[in-house]
Write a protein that binds this DNA or RNA. Structure first.
Lengths: 190, 190
DNA sequence: GGTATGACTTGACCTAGGTCAAGTTCGGAT
DNA sequence: ATCCGAACTTGACCTAGGTCAAGTCATACC
């Protein structure tokens, strides 16, 4: 729980008061690897701070499964579009390591919006941040070749490669697992 | 200018007052086809309401040009990420038809945020909307084949096809112009 | 120690879409 | 009317990455 307090400290207008405000709303949730925080088709009504563990955000089409992103400890996760529109989530959120979450119901958060500027600002910053991250990831997918995408992840998120099974990493990079395997081989040689 | 007033009416909490608040801040700008509202690498410091015309939002990489979206009359356009972060825009906004814009400086908008709940809400809704649209477009690019992308645009945005040169449409659909030409031929036969 | 299982690799082949170069077509300027 | 150039089409060929099927490897379980 203290990790969440620490997380909040990075935002402008933080005071110890804000942690006291949110504390009573936090619900602890432990997930096994493979368990879901949110299933595709359900409405997302809360956000989660990840104290420990690793989750992935993914969706299924008729023909394939796509991993949108990985969310690790000391970050927040939710299906943002489902949360704000109240519609069914087109993505699922699944733990791929045993994870401890602190869940915050969206209604609690909305109440806090009215209590303190801090929360208002946090909401906006979250939205903006979400937008920019997404934009950036999509451009990464669009503009780089499969090999370059792998290299970039290798350089920027090397730690992830240790923690994520190849099959999820492949769907994150938008390549077939076989292709990723070949890319790895090629890279390790050079 | 009246078109902008009408545009505002679709949002919750609208009152005639809000239009009076923003009126003094509006700057009229006319663009020829080909002219830029914003160039890549510049900081975006305003948003524009498009009264008439058509613009496209695009960026260049070393090897190619990508059209992100088209913005038509009665909508808003800006480089959202540049606007909110104050960093150099990684996209350009160019008129592809002669266009009349009403430009709103971001600082004016920020002042309005403090004056009326309406503007606050508009800002948040804009962010959320931007996020969802972007997300949706990227999924369209990821999950559909080139042909299916074309068909979907044909069905949902048929009007656009009349107004947009093939070369821009191709870069919007993420295909080579030659491929788009072939897809068109194939579709028109069936 | 042996074997079943899931996670990854390798090989052979295929295909969507890209690339390059040579046409068309058509609307303006002369 | 005709010439020009931009916008588009067509053809021939190429390539990145996908698909399918058969390994290999490791680890956990009997």
């Amino acid at each position: 729980m203290e990790a969440f307090n620490k997380y909040l400290q990075q935002f402008p207008h933080y005071t110890p008061k804000v942690f006291e405000q949110i504390k009573p709303h936090l619900i602890k949730k432990e997930l096994e690897a493979g368990e879901y925080f949110l299933e595709q088709g359900r409405v997302c009504r809360s956000i989660a701070f990840i104290e420990t563990g690793l989750l992935r955000l993914h969706y299924n089409t008729d023909s394939k499964e796509v991993t949108n992103c990985f969310c690790k400890e000391n970050t927040i996760t939710c299906s943002y579009s489902s949360l704000i529109t109240g519609s069914e989530s087109d993505i699922a959120i699944q733990a791929i390591e045993p994870s401890r979450l602190w869940v915050i119901p969206y209604i609690s958060l909305q109440k806090l919006y009215e209590k303190d500027l801090f929360w208002q600002q946090l909401g906006r910053l979250a939205a903006e941040n979400e937008f920019i991250t997404t934009e950036c990831h999509h451009r990464f997918l669009r503009d780089l070749s499969a090999t370059d995408r792998y290299i970039q992840v290798l350089e920027n998120e090397g730690e992830l490669l240790q923690r994520v099974p190849l099959i999820y990493l492949a769907s994150y990079l938008q390549v077939a697992p076989e292709t990723l395997s070949r890319i790895r081989k090629k890279i390790s040689k050079s």
